[in-house]
Design a protein around this nucleic acid. Structure first.
Length: 179
DNA sequence: GTACAGATTGAG
DNA sequence: TCAATCTGTACT
C-alpha cells in the first residue's frame, strides 16, 4: 500500500522511524529504506530551517508532510528529504540509505541513492502522496529500529550532534555485508 | 561584488 | 587525508 498524507503529517521523529522497512519507489526502481535521519524543526540547530530560517533552497521543508525537499551538498551530491508535519512547520527526514535489488553499494549513502534513482532538482517539491513517479510503499515488512547519532553535523554543537536522531534497521550490517 | 563552508563520496 | 564543485549566506 502506498503511504498517504496521514503518514507524513506526524512529527519527523516518528516518521523517520516508521519509514524504515518501507520501500522508496522512483521511476520503476524500488529500494527498502534502511537508514534515515530526523531534522525536527526550528529548534534543531543542525536543520537548514534552524530558528525558522527560510531560503529559496529550504522552502520545501515548510510544506505539509509528504513533499520532496531535495538539495545539493558539496556541489555534487543530492540529498533526498521528505517534509513531515503540518504546513508552515519546518520538519523533514533525510533518507540516507536504501537496499536495492542486489547492488546496495550503489544505494548505501544519501548522495549515492539519489544518483541511483536519478533524483535531482526536477523532483523538488514533488508530493509523494500524489506523484506518479516517486512514492513510498508499505510492503508489510516489520523491522526493529536502532537509534544513533547523526552524521556530518558537528557544527551544530555537541547537544544536537549527539542526539539520537539517526535511525537504522537492526540488521543494517547484514545488508552492508553483501557488498 | 568576494569569501567561505557545507546533512558526501571515492580515491590515495 | 583530500579534492571535486555549487549555492546560500555573510561579509566588503
Amino acid at each position: 500500500m502506498v503511504l498517504n498524507r496521514s503518514f507524513f503529517i506526524r512529527p519527523a521523529l516518528t516518521v523517520a522511524q516508521e519509514v524504515l522497512g518501507k520501500y522508496l519507489v522512483v521511476n520503476g526502481k524500488a529500494g527498502k529504506i534502511i537508514e534515515t535521519e530526523a531534522y525536527i524543526g526550528p529548534e534543531d540547530k543542525a536543520s537548514h530551517a534552524f530558528a525558522g530560517k527560510r531560503t529559496e533552497r529550504n522552502k520545501a521543508e515548510y510544506l505539509i508532510g509528504g513533499h520532496v525537499y531535495i538539495y545539493l551538498v558539496y556541489g555534487m551530491y543530492w540529498q533526498l528529504n521528505i517534509s513531515t508535519g503540518q504546513k508552515g512547520y519546518p520538519e523533514c527526514f533525510l533518507i540516507r540509505a536504501v537496499a536495492g535489488k542486489d547492488d546496495i553499494k550503489r544505494t548505501n549513502g544519501p548522495g549515492k541513492l539519489c544518483q541511483y534513482f536519478g533524483l535531482d532538482k526536477s523532483f523538488y517539491g514533488e508530493d509523494v502522496a500524489k506523484s506518479q513517479r516517486v512514492w513510498l510503499e508499505d510492503r508489510g515488512e516489520n523491522c526493529q529500529i536502532v537509534a544513533k547519532s547523526r552524521v556530518g553535523i558537528d557544527y551544530a554543537g555537541p547537544y544536537w550532534a549527539k542526539r539520537k536522531l539517526r535511525f537504522l534497521i537492526k540488521d543494517y550490517q547484514k545488508y552492508l555485508a553483501k557488498i
